[in-house]
Amino acid sequence: MTSSDIAIDIDNVVKRYGAFTALHGVSMQIHANEFFTLLGPSGCGKTTLLRSIAGFEDVNEGAIRLYGNDIAPLPPHKRPINTVFQQYALFPHMTVTENVMFGLRRSGWSRIEAATRADDVLKLVQLSNFADRKPAQLSGGQQQRVALARALAPRPKVLLLDEPLSALDLKLRQAVRVELKQIQRETGIAFIFVTHDQEEALTMSDRIAVMSSGHVQQIGTPREIYETPINRFVADFIGETNLLNVTVQSVSEGTAQVILPSGHPFSCPAATVNSDGTGHLSVRPERIELCPAGGGDLDVKVESQVYLGTDIQLHTRVADGEKMIVRLQNAQSTILPEIDTVVGLKIEAGAARLLAD
């Protein structure tokens, strides 16, 4: 891969605030034309990394390159990078068009050039019919798209998005996700998106970097992150998973032989293994089938049911006290077991994964 294929190259970046280290030697490459997401809980370092790319934070060690060029010496306004923040900061006294034109005019664009470009980006975000309105006359989703148009107007080489959907309600967030991904495809530039919302990351991203305590835990496609987590943190943070304590008998060529809490032997892929012969079996709730007691991989007692509309969750417990969640599709053919009954659980072949602490 050539430097022209890499929009942002983050090379062993360290960021400290006094005695606190926010980023511990972070390295990653973000491709041109890619929707890349930094995902993690609050305080994991994702926003610090985004601000470092934008130039709002100076790094203590390492380098950040834009298409092969070191951008560390450049102040934020000299970097061909724009940011969309959580707060859209639109000028309330200006129309939508004037808001989009403002930065262009400050950068030396003529009024005619700026107006033409504003028209173009408002078409891109489907707001041409709202060009003469003030921000107060727009919905939250429309204001978000104005902020996006304003950031895209100067034709940045990379667009940074710092949790820009957090102020929207759920249905509007879901709709804007689709629009945002489509806009990224149409512009053909790299979007770097920061969120703590796993569903946002899975539905929008080409690749995801999962972060924790200033470290990158795993980088991969949404499917790779969800299906083949590299450790317990990633498995537990991305979606729902069951983590069963198991005894590891052997590991060979990436396949582990383990003993389940039921005492049954079980074979599964192994990501990482503890040195003491223990581990955690990660099993997604939707990868488990119900069967009669004694007919599966382990027996559980049904404790409760949670109705989710499209799905139904069964909360169950293994004999040794560990909880297991089973997710069943809500269909007319679905037969739910009674509370306090014992049922068997059969783990889908290849669906479980052995992880270390």
Results as ranks from 00 to 15, higher is better:
residue 201 A to S: 07
residue 186 E to R: 13
residue 231 N to E: 12
residue 228 T to K: 14
residue 190 A to W: 00
residue 224 E to A: 11
residue 229 P to S: 01
residue 239 G to I: 09
residue 235 A to L: 10
residue 197 D to Y: 02
residue 236 D to G: 13
residue 228 T to M: 14
residue 215 H to Q: 13
residue 201 A to K: 03
residue 197 D to Q: 11
residue 233 F to W: 06
residue 220 G to Y: 05
residue 208 I to E: 01
residue 201 A to Q: 05
residue 226 Y to Q: 07
residue 239 G to Y: 03
residue 210 V to A: 01
residue 233 F to N: 06
residue 211 M to R: 04
residue 201 A to E: 04
residue 216 V to M: 11
residue 226 Y to R: 08
residue 207 R to I: 13
residue 216 V to K: 01
residue 186 E to W: 00
residue 226 Y to N: 04
residue 196 H to M: 11
residue 200 E to Q: 14
residue 210 V to I: 12
residue 201 A to V: 06
residue 220 G to M: 09
residue 223 R to A: 15
residue 218 Q to E: 10
residue 191 F to P: 03
residue 217 Q to V: 05
residue 224 E to G: 03
residue 196 H to P: 09
residue 229 P to C: 03
residue 235 A to D: 05
residue 204 M to H: 04
residue 206 D to I: 05
residue 238 I to S: 00
residue 233 F to V: 07
residue 201 A to L: 06
residue 228 T to Q: 14
residue 196 H to Y: 01
residue 188 G to P: 06
residue 188 G to Y: 00
residue 209 A to V: 11
residue 195 T to G: 12
residue 231 N to V: 12
residue 190 A to K: 00
residue 208 I to Q: 02
residue 218 Q to T: 06
residue 230 I to A: 14
residue 231 N to R: 10
residue 228 T to N: 13
residue 191 F to Y: 02
residue 188 G to T: 05
residue 219 I to S: 03
residue 187 T to G: 12
residue 220 G to V: 07
residue 213 S to M: 11
residue 190 A to D: 00
residue 195 T to R: 01
residue 218 Q to H: 10
residue 238 I to V: 15
residue 201 A to P: 07
residue 223 R to F: 14
residue 236 D to C: 12
residue 233 F to T: 04
residue 209 A to M: 13
residue 232 R to C: 09
residue 222 P to D: 09
residue 194 V to H: 01
residue 216 V to G: 00
residue 234 V to I: 13
residue 200 E to H: 11
residue 221 T to E: 10
residue 219 I to G: 03
residue 217 Q to I: 05
residue 229 P to L: 05
residue 190 A to E: 02
residue 200 E to S: 13
residue 237 F to A: 10
residue 229 P to T: 03
residue 202 L to F: 01
residue 215 H to F: 15
residue 209 A to Y: 06
residue 218 Q to Y: 08
residue 220 G to H: 08
residue 203 T to D: 14
residue 226 Y to A: 06
residue 198 Q to L: 08
residue 189 I to H: 00
residue 230 I to Y: 10
residue 199 E to C: 08
residue 198 Q to A: 08
residue 186 E to H: 05
residue 233 F to C: 09
residue 202 L to V: 08
residue 207 R to T: 10
residue 209 A to W: 07
residue 196 H to Q: 15
residue 218 Q to L: 11
residue 222 P to E: 05
residue 202 L to Q: 06
residue 206 D to N: 13
residue 211 M to L: 14
residue 187 T to A: 15
residue 198 Q to C: 07
residue 193 F to W: 00
residue 225 I to V: 14
residue 197 D to M: 09
residue 192 I to Q: 01
residue 226 Y to P: 06
residue 188 G to S: 09
residue 198 Q to Y: 01
